[in-house]
Design a protein around this nucleic acid. Structure first.
Lengths: 240, 240
DNA sequence: TGATCTTTTGTACGATAGTACAAATATGGT
DNA sequence: ACCATATTTGTACTATCGTACAAAAGATCA
């Protein structure tokens, strides 16, 4: 008897299903959904186009499976890191730990898939930019809980900042995160080669540092009655 | 006689070329390049598919023309606002003015095209996510000068921050900007309806506020020899 | 008005898309 | 060895893609 297991036969042979998933992930995340054909994916995976249909039925089904594969592990990792971060005493350090707990799983692998973290996050970035419907549904279902948990945790470490401000700023964090994964070479180009946009460690540190500071900014509404002047001057110029 | 003017006949008749450009802009910026067919564009513009070929030769040519149409005005506007911002005396206020000069033209119109600013910025976001080649070339040629000008200006108002840090943080700014235009409804959803992600005025204020704070964050390198401890603890946990 | 040029229309062609499906092959239990 | 099942292959169908191009329609000016 000993574990025959009709599916996922342990390891030995190259698993076509996995190869297709990996190829699709890579191609979708760099070229977008519509620019990649099922034939492209099959070729990259060393498979036959029919195999894709066999394993995933449709192209949408393939995308859906990629999401299902990654969402669980990544959110689990985030929960673990968030729990640990919440136990940090010092409020400043706790905030940084929370932000790091959000950012880190997006760059590194959320499961045993090699390098899958950054690739999957890049995929999510591209799908959200393309307004992909399949992705939109999954994302709202799967990530909103996590997002709320992080927003609440950040809010607790910054009680004087209104929750809406936290929402905005965590939205900006996600945008920065996505963009860094989608266009890392732009950083290298603009910094004249002295910084590598594709270096995950560096990107994480920079992103965490900047984001923590942004969360700590004073709220926009009904505060700082002074100061306003110079900014208002410029603003009037802006709008003719 | 009285103004016949072969092109751009003043107003009266609907200008097909403009209609096609507008339709393409809208469709590309919401669905991506590859998901939109020339026929879709023609239909949305009330034109014949052949007209698109006549005016722009190819689909790529149409995209190129959209970029040419907007890049000049938007960069001009940014230059004007940047010049004004640089004249602000107070360093803190100047930084805010510079950031605003960068953000504002991306939301509001850079020329007389109605509401074109946000739409075109959204288009750039989507194209960059899809790795579109036509866009990539134009962007590097057209926007890098502007980006450097802003980075330098910010650097001058924050002399103690290394230039590379400014590059990273302005990169994050652009990512946040893009993402806000691409997925505004996410803000509304997460803030439980009490904030409208699609409100440009609100988005600009929040973005400027958060970004200014992020620029002012202390540099990551070789600073703050204390503090490090708690963060390092969490980090070790992260990496197993 | 008639001649000339610009713009729009209608249609068609070859390429490629997603997917279906039967045949071929590999696999694992008996 | 045999069978049943799982997987892979090869191929074909239909739809739609970007684009070309000739004909129709509209505009401009002598």
């Amino acid at each position: 008897m000993v574990r025959k297991s009709p599916k996922v036969a342990g390891a030995r042979k190259p698993n076509m299903r996995e190869a297709i998933l990996a190829a699709a992930e890579e191609l979708f995340s760099t070229n977008g959904f519509n620019a990649v054909s099922v034939r492209d994916i099959a070729q990259a995976a060393g498979a036959n186009p029919g195999s894709v249909t066999y394993h995933f039925e449709t192209k949408d089904g393939l995308l859906l499976e990629i999401y299902k594969r990654h969402c669980g592990p990544m959110n689990l990792r985030r929960s673990e890191l968030l729990s640990a971060a919440k136990r940090v005493r010092d409020l400043q350090d706790r905030l940084e730990a929370i932000v790091r707990a959000y950012v880190l799983p997006a760059f590194t692998s959320g499961s045993d898939l090699a390098g899958g973290g950054a690739r999957f996050t890049r995929l999510r970035a591209v799908m959200s930019a393309e307004g992909n419907e399949v992705a939109r549904k999954i994302i709202a279902q799967t990530f909103d809980d996590t997002s709320h948990a992080f927003i609440d945790a950040i809010h607790e470490s910054l009680p004087h900042i209104p929750r809406n401000e936290i929402v905005w700023r965590s939205h900006f964090l996600l945008g920065a995160l996505y963009y860094t994964l989608v266009t890392p070479e732009r950083v290298s180009r603009l910094s004249r080669g002295s910084a590598d946009g594709a270096d995950p460690g560096l990107a994480i540190e920079e992103l965490v540092r900047a984001t923590v500071a942004s969360f700590q900014a004073p709220p926009s509404d009904s505060t700082a009655p002074a100061r306003r002047k110079a900014a208002a001057t410029i603003k009037n110029q802006d709008e003719r």
